[in-house]
Design a protein around this nucleic acid. Structure first.
Length: 255
DNA sequence: ATGGTGGGTTACCCA
């Protein structure tokens, strides 16, 4: 069973990329972020034609998350209980006996900014929500664009990024608090070395110069750890014409 | 130190 996450940075622009990629990679479940589409404009027909059911929580211009799956999708949650938030950043679903929580974590703009405070608050509320979900659903996958590079191995130039947004101590501590609920960063089960990235800034030829971060993660609950078979990042779509600034991350689970 | 690019919309936007 293959599970993937991809921040497509506009599904309107990236629908051909998505269809191409699912045809080549045939994931069973794929979580999308930054669809930037109203639900009424979600291309469910094209996606269904490709063999996938879809659920989505979108908005115009910003944010927007979706989950596509070959199997039936049930028990959909689009909001964190107790958090009043128009920004469409979370989608929790059940597919094939797995609880799948798709996150588009707040970017935070700059350390110390209002958006940074919102990011840390949002993360603490998501963490509380996940703690509750784990009680009902031990087989859980939390994946998406975390907008946090977990440690220095996930950063092309750790010294240049030290303390900066996506890398600050408070963001990394918030991720560790979430992981301590009982999750593992699946990529690190298979790869220990530095230099694997999932996002490269469009500016200054970030991709060409290998200046990236690994901020797109697939976390597995402890109950699923023994089922991990492989975790990879597929860099190829970042080389395609008019790419997203993110590329897909994948996990293969024993069925 | 600045600004670079690419989504979106026409905004002292957001990444």
């Amino acid at each position: 069973m293959k599970i993937a996450t991809w921040n497509v940075n506009s599904l309107k622009v990236r629908l051909p990329h998505l269809l191409q990629w699912v045809q080549e990679s045939s994931p069973d479940i794929i979580a999308l972020q930054e669809t930037k589409l109203d639900d009424a404009r979600f291309p469910h027909a094209e996606i269904e034609a490709a063999g996938y059911r879809s659920v989505y929580s979108g908005q115009k211009t910003y944010n927007g998350v979706a989950v596509l799956a070959r199997q039936m999708i049930t028990e959909v949650i689009t909001d964190i209980p107790g958090l009043e938030d128009p920004q469409r950043r979370i989608l929790a679903v059940t597919v094939g006996g797995l609880r799948v929580v798709n996150l588009y974590v707040v970017n935070g703009q700059a350390v110390g900014s209002e958006k940074y405070a919102y990011k840390l608050d949002w993360l603490s509320k998501v963490t509380a929500f996940l703690a509750e979900q784990l009680k009902c659903y031990p087989n859980m996958i939390v994946l998406g664009d975390f907008n946090i590079a977990p440690d220095d191995r996930d950063v092309h130039d750790p010294e240049a990024w030290r303390g900066a947004i996506l890398c600050s101590d408070a963001e990394r501590a918030a991720l560790q608090t979430l992981l301590k609920l009982g999750f593992v960063d699946s990529f690190r089960t298979f790869h220990n070395e530095a230099g694997h990235f999932s996002w490269w800034d469009y500016r200054q030829g970030g991709f060409r110069r290998h200046r990236g971060l690994r901020i797109d993660l697939i976390l597995l609950s402890d109950a699923l750890r023994s089922r991990q078979l492989a975790a990879t990042i597929d860099v190829a779509p970042r080389r395609w014409e008019r790419p997203s600034d993110h590329t897909p991350a994948l996990l293969e689970l024993q069925a």
